[in-house]
Design a protein around this nucleic acid. Structure first.
Lengths: 195, 195, 195, 195
DNA sequence: AGTTAAGCGAGACGGTACGTCCGGTCTTGAA
DNA sequence: TTCAAGACCGGACGTACCGTCTCGCTTAACT
């Protein structure tokens, strides 16, 4: 039943993931079809169905293909100035989310994740995990340096910094600008209460 | 081109929205089809296509049907204790997002919004707008009462309070519990920096 | 369940039958596909599946379309000379079975009939029936005229005259020539025994 | 190009032919696939493609496997009474054609022959040939004995005796009974004309 | 009150993609 | 070298829905 991974054709695998990515940019997610991917990749449909359970898992693998070979764990900048570092990072995130080359696949993946818990798990583990650990390391370093209170829950802190951005992007609840990123960082760090 | 609203059959409108809602719970969003809705509602497909532009707009109207007749603008509790009030409200939100009767349609709507800017606009205006205004009023009241610093950007504040929750729910990036809600409120209010 | 015949589109029906016939000649029966017929006819596949149960029934209808409007019952020539008439008719049959325009569809239909009793029934009733009655009428007339013994079973007689021809054609058990037709007629009429 | 027959594995050959025969009875000709035969025979698909050109040739070989070892040329009974002998033989043929164990494969082979002249040739030579020679010998013997007129064309005679039966079976143009067999023999022998 | 035209339920239609099945070829490793 | 196993490309299958299009019927609105 489970296919024999040893005999898998690597060229076909890459062709499929590349075709999926390219087509997504060309025709959009709504018109992205398995048949289209197979045709573009020069591959039988069965070869796709044999190795992937859904369009979402193809997208996830396509993303992973991009970072394949990168190898190393990613890291956030750590100049010692937390606010400056976060501002830099969030501005980069804003730029990426607005980039017409990355927005469509990311949005497509987000949509699939919303509907598929299993895919969400795989995403969390394979794509988001390394990034999340990098974020946590930076916050942890800031906490050690006394820039974040010792009793702050870093997981909540991460959600409070990146959540608003992602949410505004996903829900289109407002324009996604550098200015907005800056304000989020500033507000998250200083808190809402008067001092 | 635009059909004559005056002649519209109200019973069919309600039947369609109700059928859409019911089917969503029964078969899930992936298997929710226009044909299925029409059949369930005892209605011709054309009647649906005549009045709605997409599945997303049907879902939006279905939600609005629920709150139809409610009439009044919603309001958040205001006991004077901001943290207590927010905790209460976010716990309720958590409960709603976990409710098997509300989760599927909300998630479906979120998915459509992610992919359709026009629907996002309609959602922001008709469904989310009143709620957002209520949230803003409560924070504004807290600001007047000196519980929130005068120079805090209330829009960012709102995103920082509700964003993490929504994000965790949409992305399934972690369990959505009352405890999490409490920690978000507490962290948002006091900020991350040591005092 | 059963589609509404009243709303059936006659142009599509004819386009499908014509396309099936034409394709059969062009690509041969082995490569005749429903998809191909639909594409050639400019019709959705569903329209074919809605009205026909199998490729065989399409073929049968395509044949019937040819004789549509002919209206009248066919008749065999009756000059009073049975042997001459039969010889004429069998030679015509040989010519038809060898005609590259008629052989492929006839063979295809024969193949389908071999495998599908229900289709065989429909064929017997709608296509072969009128022809068989004509044959029987001619033999009956000969019997009345004293050219065939009164106690001969006309159904067996028919099979004995036309069966060898059809069989040789279907089974390709030998060349199908006018000479063969002549010999069959002669032998059938006079019997095998010496007189 | 042609594989080395010397190295051919006899067990696989028999397994394939047996599997084909068994599957034909189990699932019917329409669902008889090369893959299915290979799987049932415990054989790679390539092994089938290496040695057989088509499903029809497999069927033909499967039939030949049945009579393998029989070795001797078959012969029709020859009691001196032609009509009795033929009646006996045709009744046996009727029984065979109605036998649920033999009908499906014979019909399948007939279908393939209808569509494939090359297979028809092979069938005529290897399977039908011996039988036909036996029939011819019996008629020839009858002719020598004066039971068939000297100038009767024995090939036509054979077709006239066996053709109606085969035809009725293939075309399902009527019930295939012993009575019918008897009538065919009687009518063929005495001819249609009054004496 | 009678006529007209819209909305309506129904569902056939031309299409597109689905996910499956199988054909025929090719590759791998064991015998 | 043959073989069992099975991945591969290709392509047809029969199904499900899409969004459009008639078809009569019902039902307001406007003579």
């Amino acid at each position: 039943m489970t296919p024999n991974t040893a005999r898998r054709k690597e060229t076909s695998r890459r062709a499929i993931l590349t075709a999926a990515f390219d087509l997504l940019l060309e025709v959009g997610y709504a018109k992205l079809t398995i048949e289209g991917i197979a045709a573009r990749a020069g591959v039988g449909k069965q070869t796709i169905y044999r190795w992937w359970a859904s369009k979402g898992t193809i997208l996830l693998d396509a993303f992973l293909l991009l970072s394949e070979g990168a190898g190393e764990e990613p890291a956030l900048p750590d100049t010692g100035d937390l606010e400056a570092d976060l501002t830099l990072v969030l501005r980069a995130t804003v730029a990426e989310l607005n980039d017409p080359r990355y927005e469509p696949p990311m949005r497509a993946l987000a949509v699939e994740i919303t509907q598929d818990p299993e895919l969400a798990r795989a995403y969390a583990e394979r794509l988001d995990g390394p990034l999340k650990r990098a974020k946590r390391r930076r916050l942890s370093s800031a906490q050690s340096a006394g820039q974040i209170a010792a009793d702050v829950d870093l997981d909540v802190a991460m959600d409070m910094i990146w959540g608003p951005l992602l949410n505004r992007w996903l829900q289109r609840s407002g324009p996604l600008t550098e200015d907005y990123a800056d304000r989020v960082v500033a507000t998250a760090l200083r808190g809402l209460r008067p001092r």
